[in-house]
């Protein structure tokens, strides 16, 4: 019966405990809607025909509803609507309240991929492995804009907000592979932000965890990530980091905020720096590039003029990559802070 209804309504297969609850209410609501609209529609069509106009200037009787009729008009929908609300809200509370023994998985959405990390465990990109018949709580966050984590077969959905965690949970009922979709518009490749949940049976799950711990499947999941989707500047920043390491920048410049021989890279971009001459200069792309090519031109107050020039050692794209890297090193300081997200510490377990 349920399968038939599912087919009529084009519902995807049900694979979580919440899906069963949602679908039951769905059938109830659709059923009542159909019966009620059929009743209203039939009555209307009957009236259209029965009371069709017989002569052009026909007059009609003055009919007004009695209090009883009006009461019926109000109470009938109200009773149904409140019943639906009661069932729906009970399920909604069920859905927003993860059980205490749930397994935690951290989910981070970013343009345009999903990253999953297990506490003390492996990471994954775009593929989430979970055991069947065990509640799994997802703590969702985002690195850039709002995303929304949606698994149609589980009937669950929750927005991932930048800079904070939302939670959702599910208990998958049968092993299999289920699609993850992003349902909050998040930019150019919104529709490519797909992933999948792999639900494993108990023993498969144990094996998978073991394999992950032993590192037998190195980067299996990372390989799935479509690098072409990573923003251009982010890829450049990664190149820049490698370059900076090769070129020995880190001998004099730290990235943790502590001044060394040279000023730290952390939070440098966009800051107003004071020069030895007392002049104040905004650190922008041009300033960083010039400091690499002609370090002696501007010396920051408090630092010696010891930096060699990189004129000729770095190509244009290379210096641009290093600039991108420095730009990516914003301090978590509230002044210039980039979104690094909160740190969530679970108390239980």
């Amino acid at each position: 019966m349920n399968e038939l209804l599912n087919d009529i309504l084009f519902l995807p297969e049900r694979a979580s405990t919440f899906a069963d609850r949602v679908d039951t209410l769905h059938y109830f609501v659709v059923g009542v809607t159909m019966v009620a609209s059929l009743a209203v529609g039939t009555a209307a069509l009957f009236f259209f025909f029965r009371y069709r106009r017989r002569k052009p200037a026909q007059t009609t009787e003055y009919v007004v509803p009695s209090v009883k009729t009006e009461f019926l008009f109000v109470s009938l929908p109200l009773i149904f609507f409140l019943t639906w609300f009661a069932i729906g809200y009970r399920d909604f509370v069920f859905y927003t309240t993860p059980p205490k023994d749930a397994m935690d998985v951290y989910v981070m959405g970013k343009q345009w991929m999903w990253k999953f990390s297990y506490p003390e465990g492996p990471n994954g990109v775009n593929v989430l492995h979970v055991p069947a018949n065990r509640p799994v709580r997802l703590l969702l966050t985002s690195r850039d804009v709002i995303h929304s984590f949606f698994v149609p077969s589980f009937r669950i959905k929750m927005d991932a907000l930048p800079g904070r965690y939302t939670q959702t949970w599910f208990e998958a009922t049968k092993p299999g592979t289920y699609q993850i979709l992003c349902t909050e518009y998040c930019g150019l490749s919104h529709s490519k932000m797909l992933g999948e949940v792999v639900v494993l049976s108990a023993e498969d799950w144990d094996n998978w965890v073991k394999e992950q711990r032993q590192g037998k499947l190195p980067n299996r999941q990372d390989a799935l990530a479509d690098l072409s989707l990573v923003p251009h500047s982010a890829r450049m920043a990664e190149q820049g980091q490698a370059l900076a390491a090769n070129q020995g920048c880190f001998k004099c410049h730290t990235v943790n905020g502590e001044p060394h021989i040279g000023p730290t890279f952390l939070g440098m971009y966009g800051r107003l720096e004071t020069m030895q001459t007392g002049q104040k200069i905004l650190v922008d792309e041009a300033f960083i590039t010039q400091s690499m090519m002609d370090p002696g031109a501007y010396i920051l107050a408090g630092f010696p003029n010891v930096m060699p020039t990189y004129q000729g050692k770095l190509t244009g794209p290379q210096s641009a990559a290093i600039v991108e890297y420095i730009k990516s090193l914003r301090t978590p300081d509230i002044r210039t802070g980039a979104s690094r997200g909160p740190v969530y510490e679970p108390l239980s377990q």
Partner: peptide, 8 residues
């Protein structure tokens, strides 16, 4: 669900 949230 306990747990605490810390700012960076």
């Amino acid at each position: 669900y306990g747990g605490k949230l810390m700012a960076p």
